[in-house]
Each structure stands twice: as C-alpha cells, then as structure tokens.
Simulated scan of single mutants.
Amino acid sequence: MSEGMAPLVLRDVRKTYRSGDETLTVLDGAEFAIRAGEIVALVAPSGTGKSTLLHLAGLLEAPDAGAVFVGGQDSARMNDAQRTAIRRREIGFVYQFHHLLGEFTARENVVLPQLIDGRSRREARARADDLLGAFGLGHRLDHLPGKLSGGEKQRVAIARALANAPGVLLADEPTGNLDVHTSDVVFDELLRTVRNAGVAALIATHNMDLAGRMDRVVGLQDGRIVAL
C-alpha cells in the first residue's frame, strides 16, 4: 500500500447507465476513503446507487471517470487478471444471503478461497479453524451448510470473507436475513472480528440501530457520498 493511503479510496468517481434514450447518473463526483480498522455504515434507500457503489469499491464494475484505489493501487491501471487478483487478496465480500457451497463443510468453505490464493492446505485449515472458532463455530467445523442455522451460515460466510486477510471488507445487509436477536449477536461478532483484524469495512444496512454501532455513517445524495 502506498504510504499514507487508506485501504479504500474513491476519487471523483462517476457512473452512469443508459436506459433507452435516457441517461441515469448514479454517482457524480463521489469522494470517499476508509481507514484501516474503521467500520463505516452505508445507509441509502434502494435505487440511489448503493449497489453500484459497492460494486465499484469491490472492482466488480469500473467507473466511467475517476479512480478507485484498493490497497493503494489504482484499479484503472490494472488489466482483468490483476483486478481479479486484487479482489481475491484485498477484498472480502459478505452478502445478505450466505452463498455457501452446500456440498462442502463449514471448514472447507473457508479453506477453499485460501487454496485458490496459493496457501497450503495445512495453513488454510489452521486459519479456517481459527476464524470459525472466533465466531463460536469450533464445534461445527465439519457440518455441511444444510445442518447449520441461519446465524451459523452467516458466520461462516463472514469467516470466508476474511480468510485471505483482506484489507477491505464490503458487506451488503450482512444480517438482513436473520431474526433480531441473531442479527445482533452476529453483528457484534462481525464488528469485533473486523476491528481486531484492522480491516477497513463498508457495511450497507437499512437498520439505523446497527448503523449507530459503527464508527461513522454515510449516505448517497445527488450522486455523492455524504456524512449522515
């Protein structure tokens, strides 16, 4: 990472989409940065660009103008293979639905992304066990997703997102499918684990109670990222 640069930085980012004869401007000069160890809530109504912002930050889409820096590297200067490598190593994703591989155990779901990134099976298993243990799943390592509760599945998904020790975590309503009590417990574990790992996290949520437990809250207004 470049000295002094935050793990995730957006500079003058612009993004538009064509819909028939109309042009829809979603982001218009968006500026944003998250420091290492900082957890930021993104609160925005549907249709205002929340998903677009997460996709751009995660290098799943490219901006029409401006720059997205991940780990101090300008994604605009990368080819597809380089962007894929950055996503694998520097960015963890957590979605509202867990998207676990049903034929693999909890441990194996956390081991697989590490093997893809070149870590040895022994190292990957040890890290998977450590992460799952931190989420209270040490006794569920060999269970298939179908044998896990909703909260346990989402804990595994979060552990998987952190498996390759990313500098950035992007989460879209990570506890949105859970009941209130389970959501609170899982969210507390997520915050604790992310802070301990020093990850820069951007977490989209509609839940203002959850947003209030993060370090700061931002939203989208007229295509820009604003403090709330």
Rank of each mutant, 00 (worst) to 15 (best):
D74W: 11
E152C: 09
F104E: 07
A171M: 02
A57I: 09
L178V: 08
R155M: 13
E123T: 08
K15A: 10
Y95K: 03
L220T: 01
A134H: 09
L53M: 13
V94E: 10
S2P: 04
K147P: 00
L169V: 11
E31T: 04
A227H: 11
A44L: 11
I34P: 04
D142M: 01
T182M: 01
L144A: 14
A67T: 12
L131F: 14
V185D: 09
G92R: 06
G212E: 12
V13I: 14
F187C: 01
E90C: 04
A200K: 06
H139M: 08
D215I: 01
L141A: 14
G71C: 02
L132G: 10
K15S: 04
K15W: 04
T182G: 01
T25E: 15
L178A: 03
I91Y: 01
E173P: 00
Q154F: 13
Y17R: 04
R192V: 05
A159W: 12
A124D: 09
A81Q: 07
Q154C: 10
L178P: 06
I91K: 11
A124H: 12
P145G: 08
G47H: 05
K147H: 15
A171V: 01
K147S: 14
N207V: 06
L141K: 05
S183E: 10
R14C: 13
H206R: 12
A159L: 09
D215Q: 08
D142S: 12
D28M: 04
A200S: 05
G198L: 07
G146Q: 13
R213T: 08
T52A: 03
M5K: 02
L42I: 06
S149F: 09
T175V: 14
I86M: 15
A106C: 10
G219R: 03
R88L: 15
L24A: 12
G223A: 13
D28T: 03
N207Y: 01
P174H: 07
F97S: 14
D21V: 07
G20P: 10
E103A: 13
A126V: 13
R11Q: 15
R107Q: 15
I203N: 01
I158Y: 07
R160Q: 13
V218S: 05
S2H: 12
A171L: 00
R14N: 01
G198K: 08
L54M: 15
K153Q: 15
G4K: 02
R121D: 14
G146L: 12
R155H: 05
S120N: 03
G37I: 07
E22P: 03
M214S: 02
G47C: 00
V185K: 06
L170W: 11
L137Y: 06
A204Y: 05
H99R: 14
F135Y: 14
A62D: 13
A126T: 13
R121L: 13
V217Q: 04
R88V: 06
K15E: 00
G150M: 13
R192G: 15
A197G: 08
D129C: 03
R125F: 02
V218I: 15
G118K: 09
T16Y: 07
E3P: 05
H143G: 05
R224V: 11
A211E: 03
V43A: 11
A163D: 03
R87A: 07
R224I: 06
A159Q: 11
V26K: 09
G71Y: 04
D188Q: 14
A126Y: 04
S19F: 08
F32S: 09
